[in-house]
Lab assay of single mutants.
Amino acid sequence: PQVPQCKALYAYDAQDTDELSFNANDIIDIIKEDPSGWWTGRLRGKQGLFPNNYVTKI
């Protein structure tokens, strides 16, 4: 099955070790969508939390 993905609308710099940094237009694999607004994703071999208001699902 296809892994859900999202595209970064803005760059995000991780504020903690469990967060994921990314650049605008990066494509992130979505591991888990949480109602809190912090999703778990994977990018370039690293997994971490990121704010879903920085991305749009594709």
Rank of each mutant, 00 (worst) to 15 (best):
Q47Y: 15
N23I: 12
R44W: 04
G48S: 01
D13M: 10
A24G: 08
Y54R: 11
Q15F: 06
L43N: 06
T40R: 11
S36F: 07
I31A: 06
W39T: 06
F22T: 02
K57D: 06
F50R: 00
D18C: 13
E19A: 07
F22M: 04
G45W: 03
I30D: 03
I27R: 05
Q2H: 08
V55W: 03
Q47L: 09
S21M: 02
D29F: 05
D29Q: 08
G45D: 12
F22W: 00
F50K: 00
A24M: 13
D16K: 12
Y10G: 06
S21A: 07
T17C: 11
L20Y: 01
T40A: 09
N52S: 15
V55L: 03
C6F: 03
G48V: 02
A11R: 15
T40C: 10
D29T: 12
I31G: 03
I27H: 06
D18R: 12
I30W: 00
L43D: 01
P35K: 14
D16R: 14
T56W: 11
R42T: 11
T17E: 07
C6D: 02
A14T: 05
T40Q: 12
L43W: 03
G45S: 12
W38M: 14
K7Y: 12
K46S: 12
D26Q: 07
D13Y: 08
A11F: 05
G37K: 02
A8M: 02
D18A: 10
Q15Y: 06
D18N: 13
A8S: 03
R44M: 09
Y10L: 10
D16H: 08
T56M: 15
D29H: 09
N52C: 04
R42L: 10
E19G: 14
E33R: 04
F50D: 01
I31N: 01
D34F: 06
K32I: 15
S21N: 09
I27N: 08
Y54S: 08
L49Y: 15
N25S: 12
E19C: 11
Q47M: 09
R42W: 13
K32Q: 10
Y12A: 02
G45Q: 10
Q47P: 06
C6S: 04
T56A: 12
F22C: 01
V55D: 02
V55A: 05
A14V: 01
K7C: 13
Y12S: 01
E33A: 08
S21P: 06
I27K: 08
I27S: 03
A24W: 04
N52Q: 09
R42C: 15
A8G: 02
D18P: 15
I28S: 06
D13L: 09
A14M: 05
L49E: 08
E33I: 09
Q5H: 08
E19I: 04
I58Y: 06
Y10T: 08
F50W: 00
T40M: 15
Y12L: 01
